[in-house]
Amino acid sequence: MNVFRLAGDLTHLLSLVVLLLKIVATKSCRGVSAKTQELYAIVFVTRYLDLLFSFVSLYNSVMKVVFLGSAFSIVYFMRYHKVVRHTYDRELDTFRSSFLVAGSMVLALLINSKYTFFEVLWTFSIYLEAVAILPQLVMLQRTGNIDNLTGNYVFLLGMYRGLYILNWIYRYSTERRYWQMIVWVSGIIQTALYADFFYYYLKCWNENRTLVIP
């Protein structure tokens, strides 16, 4: 565990707290993509299947359970909560997320480091996480004025990915046996997807005005 990894995980956790806070406190999920949230739920389920048969550390196990729980809570609020579900902008959330799932599955079957059931599902979760933010980014463009909490949620997610890249560089230069090409390539693509958002987020923040993605 190094400072970049810990900061990355805590930023990820904070992003989920911000999103849940927005939903619970404002009783609204305006501007939030249910498709992205459902993709994250799929990502966590397929990646953290190893909770059942491998143990890394108490930290890892607790975080996995927290991420799973928060992902399913968010999906529950957006789809089933009697007040919140009416604030979901269905007509703005039109990205065909099934293509992302199918594409990630095909890629995971073609490119993986071991052709076993759990390894393919794990690889699928890596590929799917890389693109899971796309429905949310497209929705932000369509939403117009983006509220602070939603903007901060996406910003924190992007920060988390950036910190993970620093973590990989650090680990590669300090650990003798560390290597994970599939994770690195997917992670760099994932982080690059945030570039546009970061540009407008920082620009609007700097000019002290409400976030709008043109």
């Binding site: 491998s54 890394v56 550390s57 975080m63 991420f67 993970y164 046996r177 290597w179 599939i182």
Partner: peptide, 10 residues
């Protein structure tokens, strides 16, 4: 010793 994949990240 070669570098190997490790699944100790989240």
């Amino acid at each position: 010793e070669s570098r190997g994949e490790m699944k100790d990240e989240l």
